[in-house]
Write a protein that binds this DNA or RNA. Structure first.
Length: 423
RNA sequence: GCGAUCGUAGCUCAGUUGGUUAGAGCGCCGGUUUGUGGUACCGGAGGUCGCGGGUUCGAACCCCGUCGAUCGCCCCA
């Protein structure tokens, strides 16, 4: 007789439960509330797309495309991929559904994403993001509105010690000129760079700027700055963004070496990062960015669409949830205890009644009758209603405990004239 | 893909230089007690010591492999 083995969960997936699940839900609920304030419209997206949707928009040489995608062939032999991010799929939907007619379009969504990476603190193979995009808006005001919304989400989550790091990558020409200058600058000292950065020189020279390796860092300070290459338009755009943020009361700091990994970014690039040494930074380990995004004016063209300006961000729900003061799961408003087997049916009737009045109720009417009351107490409910038989007569008592939510007042009203003894 | 640390009960862990039938607390179930109650006590269920080899008279403990977890590098939310 061989025992059946329980299959294991897939590496990098999570079964979120208890306080973690409450924190997760709190993040999503807060996001939903705030996005309505900013009038972002809800969109539901497929979890998988044709592989080319991501390969063409994110950039073939990025790590995401070259080694982190969950790709597979469907039965028709077509290559499909589990989405590693939201933006590419949203861009595809914008083009294939004719959403140009709604432009400028403010969209919000959230859900699971998939990247084949080594899991660690704050990083999973299936992870979850909240996401906001403004498509078809070329004005810096769009960047400001989007960032103000991000800032408000974070503040309403009660997260502190997190700062908006802001940079501009300029327009396409500025970015190319800067990139060429960086290749020339770092190429001259190639042999003294870290092995990783020598490789970055080929694949993504901008990334050398935020290398952690001390061998690279000593050159980074004197590296060419994007500001030297900005066109007048690009500079004016960035100035408009920063002054708009100031007007909106969004605190930010300039981060000259902040670049984003994906090919499609132009102009504004930003990340919300915990301040060094803060509790938030500690909680996140080495995964410091909780929210990131930027402007992606070139993306639509890479998918065969008309040039369409757009800007967006995404934030990791798990990372945000780690920074939320997780109010542990509260006890029910009411616990109904049948302390006698003959009152179990009455208890069922009573909880049904309470729940129909919108009162969160838990029933304790199984197991040893003697232990039911104690079990109820341990769940820390607002009140306990005990049903028993005393002196041969049905009896009921209502006991209040520490927490007295509104619901309890309603319970008292409900039972004011029902013969319950209130304690 | 690379590196470090770690896998003993549902959970948190103990297990002394390798030495009989592997333990505790919490939780769970049943019971007793406490004169309306978060108590105490008794009993019970639950473990192929991650898995597979090896060394040894003897392995939870030592060695090798493997799987998994955690943290870091890379990259990213």
């Amino acid at each position: 007789m061989s025992k059946t083995k329980t299959p294991q969960a897939i590496r990098g997936t999570q079964d979120i439960f208890g306080p973690d699940a409450e924190a997760f839900a709190f993040v999503v609920e807060t996001f939903e509330r705030v996005r309505k304030l900013y009038r972002f419209r809800r969109v539901e997206m497929p979890v998988f797309e044709k592989t080319e949707v991501f390969a063409r928009s994110i950039g073939e040489t990025t790590d995401i495309v070259s080694k982190e995608m969950y790709s597979f062939e469907d039965r028709g032999g077509e290559s499909l991929t589990l989405r590693p991010e939201f933006t590419a799929g949203i861009a595809r939907a914008f083009l294939t559904n004719g959403w140009q007619q709604h432009a400028p379009l403010k969209l919000a969504t959230h859900g699971p994403l998939f990247r084949y990476e080594r899991p660690q603190k704050g990083r999973y193979r299936q992870f979850h993001q909240i996401d906001a995009e403004i498509i078809g808006a070329a004005e810096p005001q769009a960047d400001v509105e989007l960032l103000a919304m991000a800032d408000q989400v974070i503040r309403e989550l009660g997260i502190t010690d997190v700062t908006l790091h802001l940079n501009t990558l300029g327009d396409g020409d500025s970015r190319e000129a800067w990139r060429a200058a960086l290749i020339e600058y770092f190429g001259a000292v190639r042999g003294e760079l870290s092995e990783d950065s020598q490789e970055r020189l080929e694949k993504n020279p901008l990334r050398i700027l935020d290398s952690k390796d001390p061998r690279d860092r000593k050159f980074v300070a004197d590296a060419p700055k994007i500001d030297q290459f900005l066109s007048d338009d690009a500079r004016a755009f960035f100035d408009a963004v920063t002054s708009g943020l100031d007007a909106a009361g969004v605190k930010w700091t300039r981060a000259e070496s902040l670049v984003r990994g994906l090919d499609y970014y132009r102009h504004t690039a930003f990340e919300f990062i915990p301040d060094e040494g803060s509790a938030a930074a500690d909680a996140l380990g080495s995964q410091s960015t909780i929210l990131g995004g930027g402007r992606y004016d070139g993306l639509m063209e890479s998918l065969g669409g008309a040039p369409t300006p757009a800007v967006g961000w995404a934030a990791g729900i798990e990372r945000l949830a780690m920074l939320v003061d997780c109010a542990s799961e509260q006890g029910a408003d009411v616990a109904v205890v049948a302390e006698n087997r003959d009152r179990e049916t009455d208890a069922i009737a009573l909880v049904a009644n309470l729940r129909q009045h919108g009162i969160e109720t838990e029933i304790f009417a199984t197991g040893s009758p003697r232990k039911r009351f104690d079990r109820a107490r341990k769940t820390d409910p607002g009140v306990i209603i005990s049903l028993d038989i005393r002196d041969g007569e049905p009896s009921g008592t209502l006991k209040k405990h520490g927490r007295v939510p509104d619901a309890v007042m309603r319970i008292e009203a409900l039972f004011a004239n029902s013969g319950f003894e209130t304690q």
